[in-house]
Amino acid sequence: MSETRADRGRGAAVQTTGHAWDGDLQEFNNPLPRWWVWAFYATVLFAVVYWLFYPAWPVGEGYTKGPLNSITFEADGKTWTTHWNTRARLMRELKESPAAVRQRQYLEKVAAAGYDEILADPDMKGFAWSMAKGLFGDNCAPCHGSDGKGRIGLFPNLADDAWLWGGTVEDIETSIREGRRGFMPAFGEALGEAQLDDVAAFVLSLSGHEVDPAQAARGARIFRGDAGGCHYCHGMDGTGLKSQGAANLTDRIWTVAKVPASPSLEGKLEAVKRVVREGIRREMPAWKGRLDPVQIKLLTVYVHELGGGQ
């Protein structure tokens, strides 16, 4: 530190703190500028004002809350007034911030638009995609998975292009709004073990698997005749009837039989047999009471875009 003008004026020897390091390194002992002291008093004053305006001192069971220190926000249809805190501010911003207003405007636009309009407009589709991602995670992901791929045997895959109940936006919206009940009777008692083998072979042959042709021919007769009656729902060609939610057996997608998981033909046959023997009984709940129409609309667009709606 340098000397001050006051020192120079006196012509006196410079005052040091009295210590010396490394032989000759010394420290001047200059007075502080007086305004530093004022700045210190100012911080004290600030603290007092702070106490008055913000929660500060514990008093008995409570604390001094300070005036002008409450915040009001709306949540769950009610109005809450509480001490100021960041969570309450967040709740308020979710309703009142410019971003929330912009989101509402988008929601109104999407609510007023038809599916054709939404799907052809990158802007609205992008919004629906972002917004519905959260809705899907909250409501659909527990069964269908956060990626929408579902689980073979339990929950259909929504990310591929195979649709049990139809893949148009109207079909998807109906599925979400009204729910679906998937049912296939158990054929274990109606068909014997040999006939189950035959049917399974025929079913696998539909999707191009190499099976015993004689066995498949026997299976075809059961499938297309009254013995099995499979064609009532799956159709003569095995492509499935949308009205029944029956699976298309000619493609590579398996929603119930764990065919892709088995490397051997025996395993695949056994997987199909098991479904035919035990049947299917599964249900998706209706969401109309739980989600509002706009939310269902957003989810419809999301599911449609997940893998390839029709």
């Binding site: 990626d147 929408g148 791929k149 895959n157 990310a159 591929d160 292009d161 195979a162 298309n248 493609d251 590579r252 997608i253 892709p260 997940l306 893998g307 390839g308």
Partner: peptide
């Protein structure tokens, strides 16, 4: 999802 197998056997990425 990282990928999806389609009904015609093709692989789809989003």
């Amino acid at each position: 999802p990282l990928y999806v197998t389609l009904s015609d056997g093709r692989i789809q990425n989003g």
